[in-house]
Design a protein around this nucleic acid. Structure first.
Lengths: 213, 213
DNA sequence: TAGATTGTTAATCGATTAACAATC
DNA sequence: TAGATTGTTAATCGATTAACAATC
């Protein structure tokens, strides 16, 4: 069902969550089947692209019929890992760390925040959205003795490289990085950068460049 | 200096903030000149790409010398609009709205948050990080009578389409959308989506796909 | 069966990289 | 001047779109 050896491009992977969202919407609206053509019109992409993308992972459709929405939703979910849980820890309970700790949406997508780490004494031992806050001194022990997939990096700029390195050494599998800094680590760790300011600057560019026209 | 008519691809535009960050770092480290080759090694891209990207906007270098860091920083900044200020309003003072209101980094990139809007009575009239909170009922009047470039959309999922439409009608130039929902508006408005959950799911995919190998 | 729509191959388009003449 | 490095054109690579035979 999965053609393992062909390398799948990041361009395709980045579109998967969007498919997943649209399929989820369709399900909720009681739609049971959809053709690549219909879906392409809803999403504003070509039907060709949808079929090409999906066929990187398997033939989920049926000629003459289209795709079963529930089935396709499940399959795309499986590709994205929603058939199991990811365990997250949040490093740094500043503005962003706080917001992410309270954001219940991740749970629905298969991501559980299991612990928060910070250094401010008044925070240690408290709970945010039901999640315990530990001191950074306890990070190594916790990660060594508990299953942790992903660390969310929301610490001040200056501390990012050190803590990232520490997490890499501890064998965390992924870093979700909110620092405006590109991380390069000598460990086998996947990194996903958020870079909010970059996104905002691109928006600024788009606004300006339209004005000039 | 700017070849206006050639259309510049989004692939290039999305790389500009990254150049800007690296140039800022170089400046702070006292580096005064840099060649595309050196910069390419630091950034992990090809020197060709850097020269191609920059030459979409102008010839900022000098043969035999390279680029003056301060000058290039200024030029890339100008392209991104850092030579003027963008006025932002935040719509929705939930987790994300709160975090963004407190995030002082945007100011450094040319973005000023001028007002926050929400509906919770206990918030109206308070200040977050020095920024006044207004009631949503006052949104239309405020936007009509004050310069607002960008609205930050951090409201609950169900309200996103309505409020986005309202902002479009009010003539806001850009929407920075934090809802896990793609917006399509019949107005002349630029939209930049953040879609945090999508980013997290891509990270999940990367982790899983590495395991399988 | 006939009609519809997939899965997949082939064609096109755009983005990246390489090469090199121009020039500081 | 000679060496270095840009700006830019040409070549390559990859991603998107089109087309269509396979088939439900």
């Amino acid at each position: 069902m999965n053609n393992d050896n062909k390398k799948i491009s990041m361009a395709v992977v980045k579109r998967l969550p969007r498919y997943y969202r649209y399929l989820s919407d369709l399900l909720q609206n009681g739609v049971t089947r959809i053709s690549s053509k219909e879906l392409s019109e809803k999403m504003g992409v070509t039907a060709s692209q949808i079929r090409q993308d999906l066929n990187c992972f398997g033939g989920f459709g049926q000629q003459g019929y289209g795709y079963n929405v529930q089935n396709l939703f499940n399959e795309v979910g499986k590709i994205l890992g929603t058939d199991h849980r990811f365990k997250l820890i949040i490093i740094g309970l500043g503005n962003m760390g706080h917001a992410l700790s309270n954001y219940d949406n991740f749970k629905r997508r298969g991501f559980d925040i299991v612990k928060i780490f910070d250094i401010k004494p008044e925070l240690i031992g408290t709970k945010i959205n039901g999640i315990e806050v530990f001191h950074m001194d306890d990070l190594d022990e916790f990660v060594s003795n508990n299953h942790v997939d992903i660390a969310v990096l929301s610490v001040p700029y200056s501390q990012t490289p050190n803590i990232a390195d520490r997490l890499g050494r501890l064998g965390v599998k992924g870093l979700w990085n909110f620092s405006p800094m590109d991380l390069e680590l000598p460990y086998d760790i996947e990194i996903e950068n958020v870079h909010l300011s970059d996104s905002l600057m691109v928006l600024g560019y788009k606004i300006d460049s339209k004005m000039k026209k």
